[in-house]
Write a protein that binds this DNA or RNA. Sequence first.
DNA 1: GAAATAGTGTCTTTAAGACAGTATGTG
DNA 2: CACATACTGTCTTAAAGACACTATTTC
Lengths: 247, 247
Amino acid sequence: MVSDDEFLEHYDPTDFDRPTVAVDVVVVTVVDGELRVLLTRRTEPPFDAMWALPGVIVGMDEPLDSAAERALQTKGGLAGTFLEQLFTFGAPQRDPRTRVISIAYYALVAPERLAAAAADTEGRLLASVRVPWAGEEVGPVEALDERGDALLLAFDHAEIIGATVRRLRGKLDYSNIGFELLPRRFSLRELQSVHETILGQTLNKDSFRRRIVQSGRVKATGQRETDRPYRPAELYEFVRRSRKVKS
Amino acid sequence: MVSDDEFLEHYDPTDFDRPTVAVDVVVVTVVDGELRVLLTRRTEPPFDAMWALPGVIVGMDEPLDSAAERALQTKGGLAGTFLEQLFTFGAPQRDPRTRVISIAYYALVAPERLAAAAADTEGRLLASVRVPWAGEEVGPVEALDERGDALLLAFDHAEIIGATVRRLRGKLDYSNIGFELLPRRFSLRELQSVHETILGQTLNKDSFRRRIVQSGRVKATGQRETDRPYRPAELYEFVRRSRKVKS
DNA sequence: GAAATAGTGTCTTTAAGACAGTATGTG
DNA sequence: CACATACTGTCTTAAAGACACTATTTC
């Protein structure tokens, strides 16, 4: 048997059959208390006419993060968003044509930006995500269109979106995920709504406010909401903090 | 420009140059308050005579988890351990020979099992890990031999081990990581020591005991330690719990 | 009985939850 | 002024930390 090092040492690209490597990106936003992801409609087999995540094949000299950026741009019409590697999916039969190993990424975008990107192209859609499990469990999710009808998802993309939801739930507390899904200025109520949507459960308002304000990750701007038929809330800004400061 | 689907549709394995896909496994154990990983000595360029993680090239029809299992067996002399996907490393020049995308896994083993596996083969070593950063930061780590001398690590394996440490720190509280690193029966003091080693900081004894016992993930056996020159601690067993039970 | 660590009980401190009450915008 | 939501203050509850004290083993 040939060792791996020998394999690589006497390596001729055309000698061996090797897997194709792709990246798929789960573009996430939160609108109206719903978690939404960007899907593109397939136009050929396999899974013709079904919905899929934007993805590209990784170039031979292309870093993985760059490939994910490229998928976001060319297939999603977006650039410069928060982007992070999620998990690598490599079941041998996940693509019926050939072995395709997909490195999944997720991107977080404020709804204003994403709605514009999704709307301007046919065959692109902002689907609502229904999560049929609670808390930190895992599993596939359902994607629904505006009318609430289930969309057919290609490949293992329902699993990939499910893994994204789980990751978001896990990292929400100690990361900046919540802020990435909001515009630069936001009210604490909006931030709480984003948290509740991701977690799939309501949160205690008082302790949420205390936690966020005391964490020091947020700064009051003095500005207030406008066009509210009731008392407008103060707007806050996210402030990056390298380290927790004791008072 | 050819689309990805066209690429896959008219796919001929020998047409295109494509990356090689490998898995590397970080086999972790905790001994004497030290975090240790299993390394194998390289015997040819590149990085000849340096130390590397056990890894294999993923077979064309091989699931990723199976490839990790295989790396563990053939290169690590171990089987049937806790094994989980960590992160995928794909910088274009991480292997100077050709593009190799590596899906990193980590395995957790109780020290008794691993010491035996590591000791019986030349060119295999259980290195101590020195983590030069605190908390949930990331970065490369150092690997030291028994005498405390730094070992040279091949490829980006110092980064991969660093990412493992970070992941362990993040998941320790809410996962079963701590138990996987201990024999079936263990004292609470041993469990605390494992936690402290992974986190790189001491923990409050009282609250640690309370947390663990109240979590219900642990069951007293009635047995006690033996051969202790002082009062022996009670031994506990890990009990898997699907859901937190309110009392 | 000395030494050393295991284990228990209780007080203090801190964070979370509950809830009443005040503030401030629109109509 | 009514309404709706933002915001504040305080009480209660639960978890974490601190620490004194008791228990159990070996030598």
